[in-house]
């Protein structure tokens, strides 16, 4: 008797589970089917390297290029979250550095690069006077940077490969920190002796007494490279060619706008970043800070990352990782 009821109970629970699963999966279906109108979800990120995004949003460039479009700006904390949101089909467009893009592509993400966004003066800053190059780090030093696999990490590893013939030489010294935390830790002049960072943090750090840059991004790579690229999912690109084209045009328009109207851009951005206009103007016109749709450095990043096992394979054809008509440097 008792056995009978317990079997019955299990049957009930299993049924509930399956119904639950069915509902979840059918919900998902509905979600994807309803996109009939023009719609785009873009991950919005803050920071000078993303300035064209703020211009695009504030000047409603996308809406001008495609009047009926519904633009959805999503705020997400970091590259991993953006990648996951795009994987879950909650986002159409994300912006990130080339290495995290390649890691996702290598793991099977269905996405490609759509445009370059910016080049940026990034670099490794330290307060220790006796540290002049990365060769001067001892095992007691700590280097803060965003996360393993980030562009900062890859660049530092590139420098290590050149200097020590081993890309992972300094890995034991790395500490993962968001830019603001890393800056605070460096300015605290304690165990974090160096910070690999980007604007505006790098500018703020270098303003302090005794802080100096020992390695810039382009020195690490051996050439200039694109810091941030725009990436879209295959699904978005294939299903919404009109929106995709409008998006690319708008992005390029925004970049153009900054080139042509630096003063006005600085005003818009100053509002967004809660910084004085003069400061923003100074930053966006800083040497090395360039807004540019051309993608540079793909081959160097890919070759290095394959060589050191960060990704498992190189693309067969450049078209595997970039959409048509994307300008890139061979």
């Amino acid at each position: 008797m008792r056995k009978k009821t317990s079997i019955k109970n299990i049957g009930i629970i299993l049924t509930i589970l399956f119904i639950g699963l069915f509902i979840i999966s059918s919900c998902n279906n509905k979600d994807t089917n309803e996109t009939k109108g023009y719609k785009i979800s873009i991950a919005e990120q803050y920071g000078l390297a993303y300035a064209p995004l703020q211009i695009m949003k504030e000047n409603k460039i996308m809406e001008k290029n495609l009047p009926d479009v519904e633009v959805n700006w999503e705020q997400l904390g970091n590259t991993a979250a953006i990648r996951e949101a795009m994987l879950a089909d909650k986002l159409d467009v994300g912006f990130m550095a080339i290495p995290p893009f390649l890691i996702g592509w290598d793991k099977g993400m269905e996405w490609k690069m759509a445009s370059g966004l910016s080049q940026s003066p990034i670099g490794l800053v330290t307060y220790k006077e006796d540290i002049k190059t990365i060769k001067d780090f001892t095992k007691n030093d700590r280097i803060a940077l965003p996360q393993p696999g980030s562009v900062q990490h890859i660049l530092l590893s590139m420098a290590c490969e050149r200097e020590f013939s081993d890309a992972k030489t300094l890995d034991d010294l790395l500490v993962t920190m968001k830019h603001p935390d890393g800056m605070n830790a460096l300015l605290g002049r304690k165990d974090i002796t160096a910070h690999f960072t980007s604007p505006p943090y790098i500018f703020k750090e270098l303003e302090q007494d005794g802080m100096h840059e020992i390695l810039s991004g382009s020195e690490a790579m051996g050439r200039d490279f694109t810091f941030i690229v725009g990436v879209t999912t295959n699904k978005f690109h294939d299903d919404n060619p009109v929106v995709y084209d409008a998006f690319i045009k708008s992005l390029h328009d925004a970049i153009e706008f900054i080139h042509n109207n630096p003063e006005e851009s600085a005003e818009i951005l100053a509002d967004q970043y809660k910084l004085p206009k003069e400061e923003v103007l100074e930053y966006i016109t800083w040497e090395g800070m360039e807004y540019n749709s051309n993608i540079e450095g793909i081959y160097e990043f890919t070759d290095f990352m394959v060589r050191n096992g960060y990704i498992s394979k190189k693309f067969d054809d450049i078209d595997d990782i970039i959409w048509e008509d994307v300008e890139y440097e061979k």
Binding site: T79, A80, R83, P100, I103, G104, K107, M109, Q147, P148, G149, S150, H153, K168, L170, D171, D172, L173, L174, V175, T176, M177, Y310
Partner: peptide, 24 residues
């Protein structure tokens, strides 16, 4: 998940974080 050395050992939270950034 917040701290941890990229090359060194940083505990289980760090293990998961590393797997996340490399999409494993």
């Amino acid at each position: 998940m917040v701290f941890g050395a990229a090359g060194g050992i940083g505990g289980l939270g760090w293990f998961i974080f590393k797997k996340r950034v490399f999409m494993d």
